[in-house]
Amino acid sequence: MRKTAITFVAAIAAASAVAPMAAEAGTLDDVKARKELNCITNTGLAGFSYTDKAGKWQGFDADHCRALAAAVVGDGNKVKFIPATGKTRFTLLNSKEGDVLFRNTTWTYVRDVDVKLSFVGVNYYDGQGFIIRKSAGIKSAKQLNGATVCIQTGTTTELNLADFFRANKIKYEPVPIETNDEARTAYLAQRCDTYTTDASGLAATRATFDKPADHVILPEIISKEPLGPAVRHGDDQWADVVRWVTYALVAAEEYGVTKGNADEMAKKSANPEVKRLLGTEGNLGGMLGLDKDWALKAIKAAGNYGEIFERNIGPKTNIGLERGLNAQWFNGGLQYAPPFR
């Protein structure tokens, strides 16, 4: 009897000693075992993350989640989207509810260092701007002295705004608002003279106005907003996976690999870099702990960076954003994938 009790206790001790180890295995193994990626996205941001009629999540960030899922699990539809508000996103990531954060999150020093996130790249370079009624006759943000400014709470834009006005020694009156949609309504109802948020958001919002031409986006971009995916601190293997899947999409655009021609390129391309990227030559995927054709799968699931951009937020969509800073480096933009070798 006593012996059994001791064995029992020993078994429990052994089990509890093993359990944390199993749980602390990398996120990559967790995702593979679960056969599903838990991707934290926005609860609704035009062009970046929204639901279509069938209830499927769509958008720039959603497509990045799909590409990552395709690379890791082999199927772009194996994504569980976790819609998160600005307040819950970091907690959800740090408490392991989600594997990765694709939620138009600005990479800042404090978030990287103090909130203990690892930002692994930038999939959209944004910056904060102002929209104002043309009739106000204002040409520059520096003329906004005494203006009432609609602003979304809990975002970096609040601090940027304060910094900008303080640096230029002008006064303003903030009108704090929770969501972009409410801000739009408030601005249109003239509750504020100007609305400030990321320029991408301003363009998207202006596109929905009845008379878009009556409103101008002021030329000043008052902040740097590099939006990118983030993972938990301390899991370098998983950080590598997310980083290189993101870069693979950018590199694919650079080398002309698209959703449509990816299979063909894998077989026929003479470019050794393309061959390595798509897994025809060498075994880059194996080093990451993924299949050989990880990037091929990712590109086939979502298309390359340019395709994702054009489909969701590009000039042909209602959002109508130009590539600007997000063009490839050889076109004067900042999207630059390190070499795949």
Binding site: L45, S49, Y50, D181, N318
Partner: peptide, 24 residues
């Protein structure tokens, strides 16, 4: 607030569809 999509949440996520923006 914790990311469960009740009718208001569904509304928000659907309104982010560029086709329907601005109907809150």
């Amino acid at each position: 607030i914790i990311g469960l999509l009740d009718p208001l949440g569904i509304g928000k996520a659907s309104l982010a569809d560029a086709k329907w923006q601005g109907l809150s």
